[in-house]
Design a protein around this nucleic acid. Structure first.
Lengths: 126, 126
DNA sequence: CTCAGACTTAAACCAAGGTTCAGGTCAAGC
DNA sequence: GCTTGACCTGAACCTTGGTTTAAGTCTGAG
């Protein structure tokens, strides 16, 4: 199994190398180092980067993604079971955001027709 | 009609004075200056601050609020007509965000059951 | 007139999620 | 062995929506 340099991982994942280094600084990725201090990745890391990007896509902050990644067996790719459990979490997170937005929409509709904009009375400005 | 100092406007609106200055720097508010260079506001400004906060509440970025405020007659409070038109805009903006989130939810549901997470194929990571 | 408290400014700092840069090192092809 | 491109680090910079701080000025009550 050939290892990937950071440039190769960047190209194959579409994620800039600067971003991969950023993720590593923040504990979302880990890498083996060569004797010359350069990063080397197993191909499985590609899946882990995919997991991070997919999670970001649905609006999960990096810190939270990092917490979930702590449950990954060291150096292993995300397993189907791992993905299934994470997907359940992320799904609930999206649903909550949709619900919050819809509640806000209702408040706004009521206030839009009232138009008072009075501090201390209007739900939109208080 | 008595004028308000920035501290009074801050207290009556619940918006910190530092934030009011910040809004002014970014063109969302204007003030008269005393001979000693202190800010003075007409009471009508309270309504304008309310408009800004209400707009922020529904997720409109300050830059966009500022653009809309350009249509206000100089120094005047937001009229009911002004609010009605702005409210229509903001309502559409919320609806779009809800719709975008729901589309994302659908993509996610499909991908969550697939779980491939493959770059270039999966809609969640590509 | 004096003095406390409110006001002024510019500049630095915060969160998140990065990008860019300078200066230096590594790896690989010839 | 040399050269070139890829890589390394830390630091600075970016956006948005502010807050905090320092140093100095104004206003109004007594």
């Amino acid at each position: 199994m050939p290892e990937l340099t950071i440039g190769e991982l960047a190209e194959r994942s579409g994620v800039p190398a600067s971003t991969l280094r950023y993720y590593e600084r923040h504990g979302l990725l880990h890498s083996r180092r060569t004797t010359g201090n350069q990063r080397r990745y197993a191909e499985a890391m590609l899946r882990q980067v995919a997991f991070i990007r997919a999670s970001q896509r649905v609006g999960i902050p990096l810190a939270e993604i990092g917490e979930v990644l702590e449950f990954l067996p060291d150096g292993g790719a995300p397993t189907p079971q791992f993905w299934a459990r994470a997907a359940q979490c992320w799904g609930r997170a999206i649903d909550e955001r949709i619900a919050a937005l819809q509640r806000r929409r209702e408040v706004f509709s009521a206030c839009a027709s009232c138009g008072c904009l009075t501090f201390g009375e209007c739900a939109l400005v208080a």
